[in-house]
C-alpha cells in the first residue's frame, strides 16, 4: 500500500534536490547545511559569510511562513532538554569532523557518486540506528 506520506516525502525530496541543483548551478556551491552553518559559526567561511547567511535566512524564514500559513509545524522533539542538548552537541561535533551531514554527504555526495558521501551516509545511518536502538529500546529515554 502506497501511503500518502511517502508521496509527500518524495515530492519534498524533489524540492530539496531542486534547491541543491539551483545552489550548485547558479552559485557554484554545494548545498550542505552543516558546512554552510559551520562556516558561519567558526569563521572559516568568512569570505562568503553573506551568501551563507542569505541561505540560512531563507532556510529559516520560508518554513516559518509555511507553518504559519498552512499549519502542520510540529517537530515532536523530546521535551527533555538534557537529551536535546546532548544530541545537538553530538550533531555539531560529528558533522564538522565528517565535513558534512545528510544534505552535503547524503543528497549532494551520493548524487555525484562520491565515495566519501556514500561512506559517510552508511556510517551516520549505522550511528542513527544504534542510537534509536540504544536510547529507545534499551534505555527507554526517547
Amino acid at each position: 500500500m502506497l501511503q500518502f506520506e511517502w508521496v509527500t516525502g518524495a515530492l519534498g525530496g524533489l524540492i530539496i534536490g531542486a534547491a541543491g541543483a539551483l545552489f550548485l548551478l547558479a552559485n557554484g556551491r554545494i548545498m550542505g547545511a552543516s558546512g554552510l552553518i559551520g562556516g558561519l559559526v567558526d569563521g572559516s567561511g568568512r569570505d562568503s559569510w553573506k551568501e551563507r547567511a542569505a541561505f540560512v535566512g531563507g532556510l529559516f524564514l520560508v518554513p516559518a511562513i509555511l507553518a504559519f500559513a498552512v499549519g502542520g509545524g510540529q517537530t515532536h522533539v523530546s521535551p527533555n532538554l538534557w537529551i536535546v542538548a546532548s544530541a545537538g552537541i553530538l550533531v555539531g561535533i560529528g558533522t564538522r569532523f565528517a565535513n558534512g551531514c545528510t544534505s552535503g554527504h547524503g543528497v549532494c555526495g551520493i548524487s555525484r557518486l562520491s565515495m566519501r558521501g556514500i561512506v559517510a551516509t552508511v556510517f551516520y545511518l549505522i550511528g542513527g540506528g544504534i542510537s534509536v536502538l540504544l536510547f529507545r529500546h534499551i534505555l527507554g529515554v526517547i
Partner: peptide, 21 residues
C-alpha cells in the same frame, strides 16, 4: 574523521531526530 564523525553525528541525529538543515 569521516567515519567516526559520521557515527557521532548519527548518534545525535537518532537521539533528537534532527539534523542541521
Amino acid at each position: 574523521n569521516l567515519i567516526v564523525g559520521s557515527l557521532v553525528f548519527g548518534m545525535g541525529w537518532g537521539l533528537a531526530g534532527l539534523c542541521p538543515g
